[in-house]
Computed example of a mutant assay.
Amino acid sequence: MLRGLVAIAVLASSFIPGARAHSLDEVNELLKDDEKYFQAIDKPAPDFTLRAADGAVVRLADLRGKVVVLHFVYTSCPDVCPLHAEKIAEVQKMVNATPMKSQIIFMTVTTDPKRDAPDVLRAYGPAHGLDPANWLFLTTNQDQAEDATRKLAEAFGHKFTLTNDGYQMHGIVSHVIDREGHWRANFHGLNFAPVNLVTMINALTNNLERPHTEPEKGWLARLRNLL
């Protein structure tokens, strides 16, 4: 068992560029140099109360203790939304091959709640490679306005603008929220390297957003001490 854990630590430290960093500032600098689609953020994440496909209410506060990777789509989008979901699925596959799996929630929010019914939400992720084990697809609550999730997207800095033909004009951004509900990063578009998003996730699961004078915590820090 120990040999297997050490192997995981070696794998993680070899394929995640920031695994040896001692603060989030160091990780941010590494990513700024290596990933042109990366944007460091440092502010509270916009609050939300939404509903999962099974009817469960999901609040940002309920996710404390988990790193959240959040993105917005609408399921009838004919082009970039499916590609965005598949990009996130690629990241999720990398994360879920490590013990970080239990510390991460991948979250998709629909900006078209009128058409994206619960059965549509449930089917969308698996159709694009997302693992339901740590993935949620959220929509509005019944008492919320239809544009509530589009306004949430605006609070995260981008718009989903309705067009006359029923589609939505929008950008592509993957947002990263730390375990305390603090918005830490954006990855713009579809051309970022998945390993760089994994680098940010790894940093946040190891508490690197805290001052570097604090002891490192988390599975990677513990295993690194065994090497």
Results as ranks from 00 to 15, higher is better:
residue 55 G to T: 12
residue 140 T to G: 01
residue 64 R to P: 02
residue 108 T to F: 07
residue 132 P to M: 03
residue 141 N to T: 04
residue 119 D to F: 13
residue 198 V to D: 01
residue 61 A to H: 10
residue 201 I to K: 00
residue 209 E to Y: 09
residue 147 D to H: 04
residue 97 A to W: 03
residue 78 P to Q: 12
residue 25 D to C: 14
residue 209 E to N: 13
residue 10 V to K: 13
residue 125 G to V: 03
residue 98 T to L: 14
residue 36 K to D: 13
residue 67 V to R: 01
residue 117 A to C: 08
residue 10 V to P: 06
residue 100 M to K: 13
residue 99 P to I: 13
residue 184 R to L: 05
residue 157 G to A: 03
residue 10 V to R: 14
residue 101 K to T: 10
residue 167 Y to E: 11
residue 13 S to E: 09
residue 110 T to M: 08
residue 111 T to I: 15
residue 186 N to E: 08
residue 149 T to Q: 09
residue 88 I to S: 06
residue 107 M to L: 15
residue 126 P to T: 13
residue 103 Q to C: 03
residue 42 D to Y: 09
residue 70 L to K: 03
residue 135 W to Y: 02
residue 69 V to A: 02
residue 134 N to E: 08
residue 36 K to L: 13
residue 140 T to Q: 04
residue 156 F to V: 09
residue 136 L to G: 06
residue 86 E to W: 00
residue 163 T to H: 07
residue 223 L to W: 15
residue 197 L to I: 00
residue 73 V to T: 09
residue 100 M to S: 12
residue 92 Q to H: 15
residue 32 K to E: 10
residue 73 V to C: 10
residue 109 V to F: 06
residue 28 N to S: 12
residue 218 G to S: 15
residue 155 A to P: 06
residue 164 N to T: 10
residue 194 P to S: 11
residue 83 L to F: 04
residue 114 K to T: 09
residue 176 V to S: 01
residue 77 C to Q: 00
residue 209 E to V: 08
residue 164 N to A: 15
residue 160 F to W: 10
residue 33 D to K: 14
residue 204 L to P: 00
residue 184 R to H: 05
residue 83 L to P: 07
residue 110 T to N: 07
residue 94 M to V: 08
residue 49 T to I: 11
residue 68 V to L: 08
residue 88 I to N: 04
residue 23 S to F: 09
residue 193 A to N: 14
residue 170 H to D: 01
residue 220 L to K: 03
residue 108 T to Q: 10
residue 59 R to Y: 10
residue 136 L to Q: 07
residue 23 S to Q: 04
residue 8 I to H: 10
residue 52 A to G: 13
residue 107 M to K: 14
residue 142 Q to M: 05
residue 38 F to T: 00
residue 133 A to Y: 11
residue 72 F to I: 09
residue 69 V to S: 11
residue 152 L to T: 00
residue 69 V to E: 00
residue 56 A to T: 14
residue 140 T to E: 05
residue 169 M to Q: 15
residue 123 A to D: 06
residue 225 N to G: 15
residue 202 N to F: 02
residue 7 A to R: 10
residue 35 E to N: 12
residue 18 G to N: 04
residue 154 E to T: 11
residue 183 W to G: 05
residue 220 L to C: 07
residue 73 V to Y: 01
residue 40 A to W: 08
residue 82 P to Y: 11
residue 98 T to N: 08
residue 222 R to C: 08
residue 114 K to S: 12
residue 26 E to K: 08
residue 191 N to H: 09
residue 85 A to I: 00
residue 15 F to V: 13
residue 94 M to F: 13
residue 98 T to V: 14
residue 86 E to Y: 01
residue 196 N to P: 00
residue 219 W to G: 14
residue 58 V to Y: 06
residue 172 I to D: 05
residue 225 N to W: 13
residue 82 P to E: 05
residue 54 D to S: 14
residue 220 L to A: 10
residue 158 H to K: 03
residue 123 A to F: 03
residue 81 C to N: 06
residue 174 S to Q: 06
residue 92 Q to K: 15
residue 55 G to P: 09
residue 76 S to A: 11
residue 213 T to Y: 15
residue 149 T to A: 08
residue 105 I to P: 01
residue 202 N to A: 11
residue 214 E to P: 04
residue 107 M to T: 07
residue 121 L to V: 05
residue 196 N to V: 11
